[in-house]
Amino acid sequence: MPSLLILIVDLHPLSWSLLSIPPSPQPSDPTLSPIIAKSLPSSLTLEEFITQLLVFLNAHLASQWGNRVVVYGVSAGKSRLLFPAPSTTRDDTNTPSGNVYEPFRLLDSGLEQGLRGMMSEEGVREGKGLNEPPALVAAMTKALCCELTLIFPLTSHIPSSISPLEISLINFPSLASSLSLLFHSILTKGGYVGLMNCVFAAQKGKIPIDVLTLPPSYTQTSPPIFLQQAAHLTGGMYWRWNGRGGVLQYLHVSYNLHHNLPSSSSPMHNAACSYLLHHFPPLVSHYISFHRKEEWQTERSESP
């Protein structure tokens, strides 16, 4: 059964600047297992993250014919559809290559284009409104609407023997410490109500919301409790990156685990996940050498 993956990526400049600061040496934590302790905490830059994200999205497309991906980006005070681009603004300048599967190439170049657009908007802003929180509620609302438009025309065409597509909505908010305060300010502006409305809509539509929070605990940020709640209510997964590489593996675990396998109670779920992640060696991320890596770097230097 093909599935649709809707992804909301937090691109808030403040959170990424926080993540890309190399962590100060930490005193060794005796509670960690020796395998994990072996890999040191490292910073994560946006381009590193995006390359891993692209590989994960490709794997999602690869795992089944008919799988789809929709990506939204959120930044301070706004949200934007990154992929697929609206047909009017689509310009496919990259030529097909013999070594890249065409749907992967369309995804990669489309997402790249969307990110570029968003980054250039950030450049124009010149730091204005940078203290606003990421417009998560707006993005979630759009994502849920997108899901509705995608699902309903489909089910009317597909013979009744096929059940509706399985939909998932994944969040990757990377809320930094300064933002967690702003997160409270959402509350006063009614953002909490908006978020909860989205969560209930997702719950009713049986759409699991998976959350992967990127800032690891050493950044001294508090976890986004409302998103934990969102994941819990919708039967999704909540994960916090441990800051030691292996983001791709986190993505694989958090998404696939409850989509492809018969669902089970969440405690088991989390037990299985933590077992896997704790026994998994850090990824060979150097293997992922995208040919566009240099371009990402130039792009990042443009962004504030």
Partner: peptide, 14 residues
């Protein structure tokens, strides 16, 4: 056959 705005371009359908 379902031609929707977001459907175009990024998927693995035959």
């Amino acid at each position: 056959t379902t031609e929707i705005d977001t459907s175009h371009g990024g998927t693995g359908t035959g």
